[in-house]
């Protein structure tokens, strides 16, 4: 099979409008991947499946990656000559800019007929908030169905063209995406007998909140992330039936 670099060049020649980036893996396995243009993702996927030299007819695994917003500090060093004739001073100017985050779907492709693989392709969303749509590759590889549903559930990527895009693991009423880096799980740390590390921190915070009266330890304490305090959903308790003779 051709190398990923050769494949990248062939894709660039075949789809001149698409941006195809090579993502190098510096590890020993050197499993390099290709980041494809999301807009042309499905066309490229069809090409990968049907090209006689590739015949990547089997998608073994689809997974998601969350890239949160990243603060990057730029340091610009400028040399200022000393007016008194001394050695020039080096002034560092620091500026912080935020590299916007995004979500990524990673597909691992193999060829059953030609017995080669994997070819790893990645599709990237515009951001993590509103532009989270990627083309679904389920029409290309049937095995992507549940995997894309799982990514939709846990990361919140919307796969356009998926035949049945529903949550797979969590219930339909669930609003969060638990595999995102900024997910905050509900504050149910009332009883942590052997807590340590991060769990101990959460348990201490819970106890402090319980003492301060913010969270009643006997009450349901759904703590939605990024919600205003006080907008927590009240515990809806179904009436207890005492249906005993």
């Amino acid at each position: 099979m051709e190398t990923v670099q050769q494949l990248r060049d062939r894709l660039a020649a075949r789809f001149p409008a698409a941006r195809v980036e090579l993502v190098l893996n510096p590890g020993v396995a050197a499993e390099h991947s290709l980041r494809l243009d999301a807009a042309l993702g499905r066309d490229i996927a069809l090409f990968l499946r049907d090209d006689p030299a590739l015949r990547l007819d089997y998608c073994s695994n689809v997974t998601g990656v969350d890239w949160p917003d990243k603060e990057i500090t730029d340091v610009v060093k400028t040399t200022v000559p000393d007016p008194a004739g001394g050695p020039p001073k080096i002034v560092e100017e620091k500026s912080v800019h935020v590299q916007p985050g995004c979500l990524e779907a990673v597909y691992h492709l193999y060829s059953m007929s030609l017995k080669h693989g994997p070819v790893v392709i990645r599709l990237r969303t515009g951001n993590r908030a509103d532009a989270v749509t990627l083309p679904s590759l389920t029409p290309v590889w049937r095995s992507c169905d549940f995997q894309e549903r799982e990514i939709f559930d846990l990361f919140g990527i919307v796969f356009a063209g998926h035949p049945d895009l529903r949550r797979l693991l969590m219930w339909d009423e669930f609003k969060d995406h638990p595999m995102r880096k900024d997910y905050v799980e509900p504050d149910d740390y009332e009883w942590e007998p052997t807590a340590h590390g991060a769990v101990l921190e959460r348990a201490k915070a819970h106890q402090l909140a319980a003492v301060a009266g913010v969270v009643d330890p006997g009450q349901s304490s759904a703590n939605p992330p990024k919600a205003a305090p006080g907008s927590t959903t009240p515990a809806t308790t179904a009436p207890v039936k005492e249906a005993k003779p």
């Binding site: 009423e173 149910d188 009450q219 349901s220 959903t233 515990a235 809806t236 179904a238």
Partner: peptide, 13 residues
């Protein structure tokens, strides 16, 4: 009481 599927957790948890 059977807890309901809430937006973030079971209600009541």
């Amino acid at each position: 009481p059977i807890p309901a599927y809430g937006a973030h957790d079971l209600e009541p948890a």
